[in-house]
């Protein structure tokens, strides 16, 4: 919880972003430095995108020209000709499926580890993180033999393996969220007569929404950006954007196509990130001074 509890009841409560809270207000040189740091960070993130966008619409750009000599849609034409639209559809489907499976699993694992007695909890923790240490290539080569023998359909195999690779992210994010989650709030709702479902939908879910959105976003990225597992386990039955990008990037003279596909591939995660940012706000809006002071004697 972002709320800092005052030492005694007589001290009036104040929210960090309320005017007059000295903790968050920087002045003079500190303020200038803070703004400059923020600008530098923004530049740091945006700068690499500039050549990407320039390349995407450059029909000709050869050394040592600073800017492209010819602008056009050659990159877009080539990307469309190579099946960019179905590939985006497949990638979106894969990302959403992985997210839809790995997020609830991460929630269950994190909740169990946070609140329940779990046998060999440290070992379970290590297991949950293990996929991060195992190169995807090794896992795909080894496990695909097993998946083939079990006659798991290629697409199901891809979703299954990518879900495992997304689990460390979702369970970690949710673990942190449950660590900061105050169960007393849920108990209070129960005491006030809420059913377990109501507690889940009206209390737990809104409180955990920002973390859930973050976890789902990370899981989406795992499905969205994978190459190795999609190729080896998918067996060519599903051609995603990373396959197109990697294939085109391996050749010469495809810079515009690669740049356009990469820049376009940034858009869906960016849209989702904005969504996460919106969800990440306090669900109930800013509390008023009245509601905060209402229960004071």
């Amino acid at each position: 919880m972002a709320l800092t509890l005052p030492p005694e009841f007589s001290t009036p409560l104040s929210w960090p972003d309320q005017p007059g809270n000295g903790l968050r207000t920087s002045q003079g040189i500190t303020r200038v430095l803070r703004i400059m740091l923020a600008l530098a960070l923004a530049l740091w993130f945006l700068l690499p995108l500039v050549p990407l966008v320039l390349w995407a619409f450059a029909d000709r750009w050869s050394f040592p020209a600073v800017l492209p000599q010819a602008w056009g849609w050659e990159g877009a034409r080539a990307a469309l000709a190579q099946g960019a639209i179905p590939a985006f559809g497949h990638s979106l489907l894969l990302g959403l499926l992985v997210s839809a499976i790995a997020t609830p699993l991460g929630v269950l694992a994190a909740r169990a580890l946070a609140y329940h007695r779990v046998l060999f909890a440290p070992a379970v923790n290590v297991m949950l993180f293990a996929p991060l240490a195992l190169p995807a290539f090794v896992a795909a080569l080894g496990l695909n033999v097993l998946l083939l023998r079990l006659h798991v359909p290629p697409f199901a195999g891809v979703v299954l393996l990518l879900t495992v690779y997304a689990l460390p992210y979702t369970s970690y994010v949710m673990r942190v969220a449950y660590g900061a989650h105050d169960l007393a709030v849920e108990e209070e709702a129960r005491l006030l007569g809420a059913s377990p479902w109501q507690v889940m939908w009206r209390v737990q879910l809104p409180l955990l929404a920002p973390a859930l959105a973050r976890a789902a976003f990370l899981a989406f990225l795992v499905g969205w950006s994978d190459y190795v597992i999609t190729v080896l386990v998918g067996g060519g039955t599903i051609v995603t954007v990373p396959l197109l990008v990697a294939g085109a990037a391996a050749g010469t003279g495809n810079d515009a196509t690669v740049a356009l596909l990469s820049a376009a591939a940034l858009l869906p995660p960016l849209v989702l990130l904005l969504g996460v940012g919106l969800l990440g706000r306090r669900p109930s809006g800013k509390p008023t001074a009245k509601s905060m002071n209402g229960n004071l004697p």
Binding site: A78, Q82, G236, T237, L243, G251, N254
Partner: peptide, 12 residues
Amino acid sequence: RLWMYGGEEQGN
């Protein structure tokens, strides 16, 4: 399914 190196735009 024909698997081929995808770096040659003309080949594709």
